[in-house]
Design a protein around this nucleic acid. Structure first.
Lengths: 330, 330
DNA sequence: TTGTAAGCGTTATCAC
DNA sequence: GTGATAACGCTTACAA
């Protein structure tokens, strides 16, 4: 690799002049800058970010830690985030925790060692709290995405309690009474969507309990869903993630059920495919979510640079109902 | 950030001993290593990769440059790649070129400056050949993914000519004669899929020309597709990417066409949604593709470390037809 | 405006 | 087995 020293030699200037030619402020004669850059170009010189990072204590790296890559919802966020981050002159280091605390730990270690200035994370559980504290102590800004695992961390979430409520209420209004809602149960707590479901059910004087279907993370979801629908005699189902929506549709296919005549389906999280399939969904203002995530992060990075202390932000984005034609009025 | 110096002080050893405690070979008393690591843990020490990279001339970074993030086909590859790369103890720097040569250039500059040891790239066009040459000169290993833009670069592609041929031949066998194939035309050349389409048509003595539908990259694809179907009186269509498949299905919806009665659709690139929708597709052995990409890359990185010279590998993975029920026998 | 030199946190070489 | 020290490529006082 050609270094600034090589360029300096070739351009007959000092190494620091080369450095100056590559920085905004660098007090340097425009002519010199021009000349140095030209020589550098010919030599194939590119500044070494590792060295810069070491010297400046600024890596210009943002760590992105996602959980489940099968969820198209996240894929679409990834692009938005990358775009923003790049525009700010930062780079994205991509990691997946696979909903696994041990892997999450490895990701975090790697990101810390990479001197990431900020991280956008979907925490798996409370298990790695010490890591997040270490990061905090080291001034690494963190924003948790779509999940509120740590109360004192910056947060950008969708108001899933509201989403669950809206979804359930709509189905109730359409006359459904035996409604299934699916969930993954990570902690002991009920997911927010389920909480909203409960609230709506209780408003209608319905026992929410039998409709709550806890699913395993990776195996035979459609079989379980099919069984639950038959078992409860459900007339409607709220599928709580994109992968679960897929499983639900497969269950319908295998049982030969037609939408919305035999079963009403309301998907949580939207996808272009759902539009094609005519399936109503709880959807989210993706642009707003993506923008917020990155904005909060860089606000914090900025503040830190000025040695200001910011209190944790807590942004909750409102989901809304997108009607198509997968829900039948009873 | 706490550095090895801090740990050294706290553990009453020299800084180089701390360093040794964190390397495989490091000739160090196991007891000392244990003790040092414990002190480090308490202090919240993590090795600084920038410094390591600077000193070792090994960043342990792999650059991943994708084109279109809307294509779920790539999203699924991304995860596979990340998994592999992480397992090799490397990190993934994610960039998107948006099918735009200027952006591609920025991505490459960033990756070079990041000292990436290897990059997995989907080149946009020949425009940035100088960049790729610079990388080559600097010993940065590159593998082009799914496209063969540079003849002398390592390549992992799907044999799209074969895929186009298989798809077309199947439709012809089913009695279709007016078949549309869609494409994006980046260079002057016909895409490989279209070449396969041509070959099959010619075997059947059919003029391929009228069926070739060139689409713009981002706007109103479904309108154009609908127009083309009507215009040609097509009985079948091969949609050449996942986003185009979506557009095709939208076109069908808006024209009120039912599959496969009113139109036969054969998708190029598979998706779980297509399974749900019962749409036949040309699919790819994703695992094989992902594995190959990373294997080729690390084979090259390994060779470079040993100062060996490897000639460019050229891997072509065979696609195959997955029959569902979106094609009608005429 | 430019050059000199110190230092960022590592690893590797060389003594001991 | 351990410690001192130079060097990696860069930025930034400070000096000229």
């Amino acid at each position: 690799m050609v270094s600034s020293k090589d360029v300096a030699r070739a351009a007959n200037v000092s190494q620091s002049t080369v450095s100056r030619a590559y920085r905004e402020d660098g007090n340097i004669d425009p002519i010199t800058r021009q000349r140095v850059r030209e020589v550098a170009r010919q030599l194939g010189y590119f500044p070494n970010f590792s060295a810069r990072s070491l010297r400046n204590n600024q890596s210009h790296i943002i760590g992105l830690m996602l959980s489940d890559p099968n969820n198209a919802f996240f894929a679409s966020l990834t692009k938005r985030i990358e775009e923003h981050v790049t525009q700010m002159g930062y780079r994205v280091l991509l990691t997946y925790n696979d909903e696994n605390a041990k892997k999450e730990r490895n990701c975090l270690e790697s990101l810390i060692s990479s001197q990431a200035e900020g991280i956008l994370t979907m925490p798996v559980s409370k298990e790695n709290e010490d890591m997040y504290r270490t990061m905090h102590n080291n001034g690494i800004c963190a924003v948790q995405l779509l999940r509120r695992v740590y109360p004192n961390m910056n947060t950008v979430v969708v108001d899933d309690e509201l989403g669950g409520y809206i979804a359930t209420k709509y189905l109730l209004e359409q006359g459904h009474r035996r409604i299934i809602i699916t969930e993954y149960k990570f902690n002991q707590l009920l997911p927010a969507k389920t909480l909203g479901y409960q609230r709506a059910c209780e408003e209608y004087g319905i026992d929410p309990e039998p409709g709550i279907l806890n699913l395993p993370f990776d195996t035979n979801q459609d079989g379980i869903i099919a069984g639950a629908i038959a078992g409860l005699g459900a007339t409607a189902i709220i599928s709580s993630t994109i992968p679960i929506t897929m499983a639900t549709l497969k269950a319908c296919n295998s049982m030969g059920m037609k939408l919305p005549d035999d079963l009403s389906v309301l998907a949580y999280d939207d996808s272009e495919w759902l539009d094609i399939l005519g399936i109503s969904a709880i959807t989210h203002p993706m642009k707003e979510i993506g923008d917020n995530m990155v904005d909060v992060l860089f606000r914090n990075i900025e503040a830190r640079r000025k040695r200001e202390q910011l209190s944790a932000e807590n942004i909750s984005v409102k989901p809304y109902l997108l009607l198509r034609k997968s829900v039948r009025r009873l």
